[in-house]
Structure formats: structure tokens, C-alpha cells
Write a protein that binds this DNA or RNA. Structure first.
Length: 223
DNA sequence: CTCCCTTTGAAGGTT
DNA sequence: AACCTTCAAAGGGAG
């Protein structure tokens, strides 16, 4: 449980709906402070990359006579790598699928200016990658992992030509002030206690457990 | 032990 | 040109 006080969240709830306080969270509270200027990046090793996570797939990557060279991270991946600890700490979600959903919405809530630093860093890494591994193509990694099977056969909705089932939608609060969203009615609760609102994040906080929700804190909805 | 899930973006192939 | 496919990270969960 993360101890987040009302003062830390924000002094005043921005809205009360259905017995829940809605706090608008300053965006700054969700992001790590700007790290100190990084030291000059060491030249990437010309040796093969190794999956740091033993749980990562190794299919085909270990028997290759050629070193396995990973793709450079794109902007969103850099954002996730930086913010994942924050999101995990804030929302107590350990499973990456849920965390990634949250961060996907956080990413969309960022302004272009805020995203820019990640795009620039991604571009820088891509340039370094290209100069370090001339001739490398991301195609080289195709098939190194097990071919992704769109779940069309299994569940029928992970085919990009097949729309995913409609998740409970956010609706605009008709008279919302700084809170642009509120819960859609008749939403089956899940456990992700926040929603993005423009460049800020709105926490849904039960009155009874203010200032921060318990695990029973209500809804997460997705556009 | 290995893969799935889940996100966005990039890259390369295909239509 | 537009669309499709794969893989980058992460770690709990499932088989």
C-alpha cells in the first residue's frame, strides 16, 4: 500500500461523484524528477545482447551464430522504462500488462512537448544503433521470437482487423470542472484507480478511504 | 521453463 | 500509398 495523503495527492478533491472523491493529480507527481545529465553514453558493446530477464523469450536467440542485436527502443518504450517504477509504486499493479495499459494512457496524455524528449532520445539511440551495427535490420530478429499468434483463433479479438471488444468507456462529465472524465455507469470495476485527464491524472477515491483508495477502489475505464 | 498479456512506435514487407 | 507483421520492455500468471 502506498501512503499517499490527500495533501500529497492534491489538497482538495475536484469533484464528488457517487460517494467518491475525485482528486486531480498534478502531473509532476507522476513522473520521476528529471534525472541528472547522463554521463556520456559508453559506446554500445559490439558483443551480442543477452536477454537480461531470464523470463524473456530465448527462442532462436541463443543458437544463432550471429549475435542477437535488439531493436533500439522507441520513444514509448523509453517512456515506459522510465515511468514504470512510478506507476507500479503509485498503483500497486505488478503485472506489466496492466501497468502498460496505464502508461499507454499516460503517454497519450502527454503533450507533444513532453513527448519530444523521448522521441529525441529514441532518435539518438537509433543513430547510435545504426552506426554500431551497420547493416543490421530489425528484420534480422524476425522469427527469433516465437511468431506472434494473433489471438483470432483463440479469442477472436487480437486481430487488428477485428476490433477488440468494447471496453467500458469513459464519458465526459457534463458539468465537470477540472475533471474532464467521470466513470461511465454500469461499469464493471477493475482495479486501476486512475484515469488520465488531459495532461493530468484523476484518481478515483472512495470517500470512506480517502485519501487513497484501497484495492477495492473502483473503476478503470478505457476509451 | 517458456510464452502470453498489454501498450506505442519503428521498420520492413506485402498488397 | 496503405496496410500488415514483428519486436522492442516488463513481470505476473498460465500451461
Amino acid at each position: 500500500m502506498v501512503n499517499v495523503t490527500a495533501a500529497e495527492v492534491n489538497q482538495m478533491p475536484v469533484e464528488v461523484l457517487d460517494a467518491q472523491l475525485f482528486y486531480e493529480l498534478a502531473q509532476d507527481s507522476f513522473f520521476l524528477p528529471s534525472p541528472p545529465p547522463p554521463p556520456p553514453p559508453p559506446p554500445p558493446k559490439a558483443t551480442n545482447f543477452v536477454f537480461p530477464d531470464k523470463k524473456k523469450r530465448k527462442t532462436g536467440a541463443q543458437d544463432s551464430s550471429r549475435p542477437y542485436i535488439k531493436k533500439p527502443l522507441n520513444a514509448f518504450m523509453l517512456f515506459m522504462k522510465e515511468q514504470r517504477p512510478v506507476v507500479k509504486a503509485q498503483f500497486l499493479h505488478k503485472d506489466s500488462a496492466t501497468v502498460n495499459k496505464i502508461m499507454g494512457q499516460m503517454w497519450k496524455s502527454l503533450s507533444l512537448e513532453q513527448q519530444e524528449k523521448y522521441y529525441e532520445e529514441s532518435e539518438r539511440l537509433t543513430v547510435i544503433h545504426a552506426s554500431t551495427y551497420p547493416g543490421w535490420s530489425c528484420r534480422d530478429n524476425y522469427g527469433k521470437k516465437k511468431k506472434r499468434v494473433w489471438r483470432s483463433a483463440a479469442t477472436g479479438f487480437n486481430n487488428r482487423s477485428t476490433p477488440a471488444p468494447v471496453l467500458p468507456a469513459l464519458v465526459h462529465a457534463p458539468s465537470a470542472s477540472s475533471c474532464n472524465w467521470h466513470e461511465a455507469p454500469q461499469v464493471e470495476p477493475t482495479s486501476v484507480p486512475f484515469m488520465t485527464s488531459g495532461a493530468s491524472l484523476v484518481a478515483y477515491v472512495p470517500l470512506s478511504s480517502s485519501p487513497w483508495p484501497s484495492s477495492s477502489c473502483p473503476t478503470y475505464t478505457q476509451l
